[in-house]
Design a protein around this nucleic acid. Structure first.
Length: 373
DNA sequence: TCTGGGGTCCTAGGACCC
DNA sequence: TCTGGGGTCCTAGGACCC
């Protein structure tokens, strides 16, 4: 692999990554000022320490107690029973997210939303140097604060990877700039899990190879990484050298629609399981209709009490938008694969292999027509 | 610790076609 | 009688993201 050849490309772009600070709990604090200064946890109902589910987001006061997103809500309760526990209000968060994304989209022609509260902006055509990019970032922070009264952290770098790691470097309300000639120094001491797509499992495997920091990874034998991790190993090695050619681009096509339900208590009540499956199918169907989509593949997800999870899918011979077809298929998949000797923790329904219905095709055609495309 | 819900992408084996 | 090579689609599982 020739690292040198890529440096020209990577030095031509200036990318911003904008990340809202503890978004859900920040919104809750904004809506109710009496929460300010207190530990706030948004997530599942803790039920005095017996609740299931996890922490979605928590503010910095709650983090002081060791609480973090993804943590079981029962553990959060043990760490801080006096924190304020709130259920997530997705309707509100989605509404505010749209306001924020509209502000950001106006700042960059090349824009990509990433989750509900993050976005990448390619501002290469808008600013000439990092000094200008910094001014732009400060303006963005001001505009967001002025309009929605929330703070964000921004990272600026020569590609998405660097920008993303930089936005996480100083929080909350941070601004971190990493110029192309500073990337190596910036990345080197950071733990490998800071890299995009290096999660818990990959980090463990890397640690056993004696790789702990991104610097360790950059100095490791690239062909050995490729042998061990395949394409992912190749990408990791490039990332460790600060190289990332991926484009900032908005994705609009939906690949799948799914709904899952974890039972309040693990159950072997077949009627409850079937009723839940049907209601999940209906919810998925409603979203299909709303988006004018048809499906071809149906997947049922079963999770047992020991957390063992299986997925079973069936691809139909035709595309359909029929609720009857969906419920028939999910019920069949469930009946053919259910283990009756174990209690069920979760069931899920997913549709994929999606395509537009006639109605959506017409809408797209009209939209293109009105824009002269 | 006892693990949500909504997604995307990748891998690997097998069926099937030419 | 023993067995190709390329391509696509399907299925199941898994890692990762917010």
């Amino acid at each position: 692999m020739n690292i040198q050849n890529d440096s020209n490309l990577r030095e031509t772009r200036i990318i911003l990554h904008v990340d809202m600070d503890h978004f859900f709990s920040a919104v809750e604090e904004r809506e109710n000022s009496s929460l300010k200064g207190k530990p706030v946890v948004v997530g599942a109902d803790p039920k005095e320490g017996t609740g299931r589910g996890v922490v979605s987001t928590c503010n910095y006061q709650a983090r002081y107690y060791g609480i973090h997103s993804g943590m079981p809500i029962s553990k959060a309760w043990k760490l801080c029973p006096t924190a304020l526990y709130l259920p997530p209000n997705f309707t509100l968060y989605t509404h505010i997210s749209k306001e924020i994304m509209n502000i950001l989209r106006k700042q960059a022609v090349i824009f990509q939303q990433w989750g509900i509260d993050e976005a990448f902006l390619d501002v290469s055509n808008k600013v000439n140097e990092y000094k200008e990019a910094k001014i732009l970032a400060l303006n963005i922070k001001n505009e967001i604060f002025w309009n929605v009264n929330l703070t964000c952290s921004i990272g600026i770098g020569p590609n998405k990877l660097i920008a993303k790691i930089a936005s996480d470097y100083k929080k909350p309300n941070g601004l971190t700039i990493v110029k192309p000639d500073e990337t190596r120094q910036f990345l080197s001491p950071l733990p490998v899990h800071k890299l995009l797509y290096v999660g818990k499992k990959t980090e463990e495997k890397l640690n056993t190879l004696g790789i702990n920091t991104i610097g360790d990874l950059a100095n490791f034998d690239s062909s050995l990484l490729e042998d061990r991790f395949g394409i992912a190993g190749k990408n990791m090695y490039r990332m460790a050298h600060g190289i990332d050619d991926s484009k900032v681009q908005e994705r609009h096509r939906v690949e799948s629609i799914s709904n899952n339900k974890t039972f309040e208590e693990d159950t072997s009540d077949i009627n409850l399981i079937l009723d839940t499956l049907d209601s999940l199918s209906s919810r998925v169907y409603n979203r299909l209709v709303k988006n004018s989509l048809k499906f071809k593949t149906v997947t049922v997800r079963l999770r047992y009490e020991n957390f063992e999870t299986h997925t079973y899918s069936k691809t139909l011979t035709f595309k359909t938008g029929s609720l009857l077809e969906l419920t028939k298929t999910t019920q069949k998949l469930l009946r053919n694969n259910l283990h009756h000797d174990r209690k069920m923790r979760l069931v899920g329904v997913k549709v994929s292999n999606l395509s537009a219905t006639k109605r959506q095709e017409t809408l797209i055609k009209n939209w293109r027509g009105s824009y002269g495309k």
